[in-house]
Amino acid sequence: MVDLSVNLGGIRLDNPIIPASGTYGFGYEFSELYDINILGSISLKGTTKEPRFGNPLPRIAECREGMINSVGLQNPGVEKVISEEIPKLRQCFNKKAIANVGGFSLDEYTYNCEKLGEVPEIGIIEVNISCPNVHAGGMSFGTDAKNAAEVTRRVKAVTNKPVFIKLSPNVTDIVEIAKACEDAGADGLTLINTLMGMKIDLKTRKPVIFNKKGGFSGPAIFPVAIRMIYDVYEAVKIPIMGVGGVATAENVIEMMLAGATAVQVGAANLTEPYVCKNIIEELPALCEKYKIEKLSDIIGGAH
């Protein structure tokens, strides 16, 4: 019997599989498809203080082995997430979830983290300082080491829950920012968010996406994620939630070898709604194939 469990920031997960924020809503809709209690955890839809519709349509474009989105953090706002969405999730999910927090200012990040940190169903706070689809705030906090550290410090001061900072790949040196977050007290890191991308329609000669640019995700970015996780793992001691292009159980093992303690599955949920279930079911046999008795033993094994 292969042991799939991992310890993420002091929380024991039955397995390392976590649907990534923005690809799984607030979880309960996938419970119509399968028992979502099989998951390690769920990273919930990015939450801001005020309700947001997000960006104008079209906000989806298809690319080779991936897609561009410019949804722009559509969400009902932190109050409704706590009063309506999380109670719906509670009906079908009995494990701790991960709150994904967006923001446009230091005060907003702090406010949202404090509120969501008080919710008993939330085990980890994931702070998104890397959304490419909002003009103010969002990624601008994630592309500068000083700003990233400041967000981390402020958020850590208002919650006792483990804080993971979700980093942008759209930077010159992700390691510098990762270290700044660790030094500022982050309990862990999530990487990578989407890569900035663009698609132009040959017939209209215009960008497909209304906002012109968006976040590129899907299997095409997997090697980029592996490289960045590998580099950051070398430089920090705190755990990493790996994310970026994961679509198979093999991808999960590769990402853990690079240095991920847990692995988020993102865009694949949108094209293969059963992908997380399939990966969890395939992992034991794959571990046997690669002679892995305890999955957590392989974390960072490629170093």
Partner: peptide, 27 residues
């Protein structure tokens, strides 16, 4: 019609505003 990501309500790619709040064209 809308340009959709998932087609089943997960990605918020095809949302629209209605008199009764935001709705996903697909779901």
């Amino acid at each position: 019609e809308a340009r959709m990501g998932c087609g089943f309500g997960a990605c918020m790619g095809c949302s629209c505003e209605t008199k009764y709040g935001n709705k996903r064209i697909c779901k």
